[in-house]
Design a protein around this nucleic acid. Structure first.
Lengths: 207, 207
DNA sequence: GTCTATAACTAGATAGAC
DNA sequence: GTCTATCTAGTTATAGAC
C-alpha cells in the first residue's frame, strides 16, 4: 500500500544500488522492479526505457554535485573580495562536492563512482547529452576562476591540467578502497581529500 | 581459404574495434563473428565465453604496455647508475608506454581507453584477476623507484599520488579528443604527454 | 578445427484490462 | 498509475555433422 516513498524514487534507489553492485548490463529491468517491489511495466511507464533510467539515476547524483560546485565557487569568490580566491579553494570547490555527494550513494559512494566511470567510457546518447550539458558550463567557470588565480598560465595549459585533475579525482573515488595494499597507512577521507588538493595545486603551479 | 591472419586474431581484432565503437554490451558475439567472417561457435571454442573474450582483448593490450613500462623503468635505472633516475624519467616510464600501445589499438587508441575504463569501473571476475596480476607488481616497482627519487615522501603519500597520476593518465587517454572546446590550442600528443609529466612531477614534489 | 543448427533462455518493451 | 500477460527479438552456449 504505497511505501514511504513513491514508485519513481524506489526504482531510482534500487537501480542505483544494483548498478553499483553488478554493473549496468548485469542488471535487468526485472531485477530492478523486483527489488523495488513495483510492477515490471513501471520502468517503461515512468522513464521510457532502460537507457533513460540509467541517465536518470546518473542525473539525480550529478546535478546536485555540480550545483554544489558552482555554489562553492561563488562562495570562494565572494569571500575573496575582488582578489582571486586561493588556488586550493578553487580546487576544493571542485573536489569536495563530488566526494560529499558520492558518499550519499550506496556502498559509501562506490555505486556512484562506478556509474560515473561507465558513463564516461561507454555513454549512451542520453548520457552523452547529459554530460555535455552538465560539464561544459561548469568547466568554463572553473577555467575562468583558474585563469584569475594563475595569470601566468595559458588557457590551454589550464584546460589540460583541469582534465588531469578531473581524472585524478574520479579515479580516486572509483578505487578508494580497491587496489590498496596492506602497508598503506589508514587515512580518513578528509586527509585523502587534502592529499589530492595538495597534489593538484602543485600540478597547476608547475612552471 | 584462410585469410592473412588466423581465426583467433581476427576475432580479437574485430572485437576490439566493435567494443570501442559501441561498448561491450552493445556488441553481440554474432556481431563479432560476422565481422571476423568466422563461425558463430568460434568464440566459444577459442575463448570459452564472451567474458573470457573481453578479458583476452584487454589482456592483449595491457600485458605489452606493462612489460614496456617495466623495461623503461629498468633502462632509466640502468642509465642513472647507482643514483636514482630523475622523477620525470620514472613518470615517463609509466606514461609513455600506455600512450604508445594505446595508439596501436583502433581509432587512435580510443578503443583501448574505453575498454580500459570499462574494465576499471565494471570488471568481470576474469578482468578483476587480470588487473590484480598486471598492476600489483608494476605498482610495487613504481613505488620503489619513486621512494628512491623522493626520499622525503612517505610511502603512503607516494601511493596516493601514484593513484592520482594513474587517474590523470587514464582520463586523458579516454577523453583526449572529447570534451575539448574549440578555443583549446591544438597540441600534438608529444606536447600533451609532456604536459602530463610536468603536472604529475610537480604533484609528486609538493611538500 | 570448423561448421550448421538449434537448444534454452533472457532481454526490453507494450497492449489492454482495471 | 498500476497490473497481467505476452510479444518479438535478441542472447550465449552447445551437440553433433563434416
Amino acid at each position: 500500500m504505497t511505501e514511504p516513498i513513491d514508485t519513481k524514487s524506489r526504482i531510482l534507489d534500487i537501480a542505483e544500488e544494483l548498478f553499483g553492485e553488478r554493473g549496468l548490463d548485469r542488471v535487468s529491468i526485472r531485477d530492478i522492479t523486483d527489488g523495488a517491489k513495483v510492477n515490471l511495466a513501471a520502468i517503461n511507464y515512468h522513464f521510457g526505457s532502460k537507457d533513460d533510467l540509467v541517465a536518470a539515476v546518473f542525473e539525480r547524483r550529478v546535478v546536485p554535485v555540480n550545483e554544489a560546485r558552482l555554489a562553492a565557487l561563488d562562495a570562494a569568490e565572494k569571500s575573496a573580495g575582488n582578489k582571486s580566491p586561493k588556488l586550493e579553494a578553487i580546487l576544493a570547490a571542485f573536489i569536495r562536492p563530488a566526494l560529499q555527494c558520492s558518499l550519499k550513494s550506496p556502498k559509501g559512494g562506490t555505486a556512484f563512482s562506478k556509474l560515473f566511470g561507465r558513463c564516461l567510457s561507454e555513454p549512451s546518447p542520453q548520457v552523452e547529452a547529459l554530460l555535455k550539458k552538465q560539464f561544459e558550463p561548469l568547466m568554463e567557470r572553473m577555467d575562468a576562476a583558474l585563469m584569475k588565480a594563475l595569470p601566468n598560465l595559458s588557457r590551454t595549459d589550464i584546460f589540460w591540467r583541469m582534465k588531469f585533475t578531473f581524472g585524478a579525482l574520479h579515479h580516486w573515488l572509483l578505487t578508494r578502497e580497491k587496489f590498496v595494499p596492506a602497508w598503506v597507512e589508514a587515512t580518513d577521507l578528509e586527509e585523502q581529500t587534502q592529499k589530492l588538493i595538495t597534489y593538484a595545486a602543485a600540478g597547476f603551479r608547475a612552471a
